Amino acid sequence: MSLLQDSVNTLNQVPQQTVELASTQENLNLIQLLMKGGWIMLPIILLFFLGLVIFIERYITIRNASKREGGLMAQVKTNVLSGRLDAAIAVCKSSNSALSRMLQKGLSRVGRPIKDIEGAIENQGKLEVSKLEKNISILGIIAGIAPMLGFVGTIFGVIQIFRDVEMAGGIDIGSVSGGLYVKMIASASGLTIGILAYIGYHILNMMVERLILRMETDAVEFIDLLDEPGA
């Protein structure tokens, strides 16, 4: 009876030891896990932080530029129709937004042909758009480079594994599978960062495109205002 009880206790300890081993492996924090990917993880992590900083900075900038100033066009229209161009220009200067700078450039050309005014507004609009798109292309570059760096890390890892196998003179399934597990971290990290950068790149581009459409609409409204008989 005692022998049977000892056998039962031994069987009960095996799953418990397995659970404890799994728990120890799961307790690896994120930094330790990433560092197992090798030296290639350093540039991948740098790309992640670079992309994060660019996305947050551009998102805030574009969001602030997208805030609609409801009274701007109304004040400009009132002053233009009243013949107070200096007051309209002063309103634009006090606003200090992309649209106000475009309108200010157009107001400074009042008295010239409409084509000249349109050209001035269009050129100012291109400058404003270039400011908004600053550094967004870097996110596109990160989206392409990060996955490739991850694959490079995995390839170097596989090369190292086969070199260790050759030096050992035999194949140890445990070491090979463990090495692959470690080196696949680089690929997973690179792909994840690449996907995030790709998403961020397109989010910012969509925000800029919506803002451009609104600026073009307001510019057309301003040109129509100058074409009115009383302007």
Rank of each mutant, 00 (worst) to 15 (best):
S2N: 13
L3H: 10
L3V: 11
L3R: 08
N9K: 15
T10R: 11
N12P: 04
Q13F: 13
V14S: 04
Q16D: 12
Q17W: 14
Q17R: 11
T18N: 15
L21A: 12
L21P: 06
T24S: 15
E26V: 12
Q32L: 03
M35R: 11
G38C: 07
G38R: 03
G38K: 04
W39I: 15
M41I: 03
I45C: 10
L47F: 12
F48C: 14
F49V: 09
L50I: 15
L50C: 13
L50K: 02
G51N: 06
L52P: 04
L52K: 10
L52G: 11
R63C: 13
A65E: 05
K67V: 13
K67L: 13
E69C: 08
G71M: 14
M73W: 04
A74G: 10
A74S: 14
Q75H: 05
Q75D: 15
T78R: 07
T78F: 08
V80R: 03
L81I: 04
L81S: 05
L81A: 10
L81Y: 05
S82E: 15
A87W: 09
N96A: 14
N96G: 05
A98E: 08
L103S: 08
Q104S: 15
S108K: 07
S108Y: 07
G111N: 06
G111M: 09
P113Q: 04
P113A: 07
K115C: 01
A120N: 06
I121A: 11
N123I: 07
Q124N: 10
K126E: 14
K126A: 14
E128D: 03
V129L: 07
V129Y: 00
S130Y: 01
E133R: 09
K134G: 09
S137H: 07
I138E: 01
I138V: 14
L139T: 06
A143T: 05
I145D: 07
G150C: 06
G150M: 02
F151N: 03
F151W: 08
F151D: 02
V152R: 04
I155D: 01
F156A: 09
F156S: 08
F156P: 03
G157D: 00
I159P: 04
F162M: 01
V165S: 12
E166M: 09
A168P: 00
G169L: 12
I173G: 13
G174E: 05
S175R: 13
S177Y: 09
G179P: 08
Y181A: 13
K183Q: 06
I185P: 06
A186K: 03
S187P: 00
S189L: 05
G190Q: 03
L191F: 08
I193L: 10
A197G: 04
I199D: 11
Y201R: 02
N205V: 08
M207W: 01
R210C: 09
R210F: 02
E216F: 10
E216M: 11
E216P: 01
D218I: 02
V220K: 00
E221C: 04
I223F: 04
L226G: 01
D227Q: 15
E228Y: 11
E228H: 14
G230R: 15
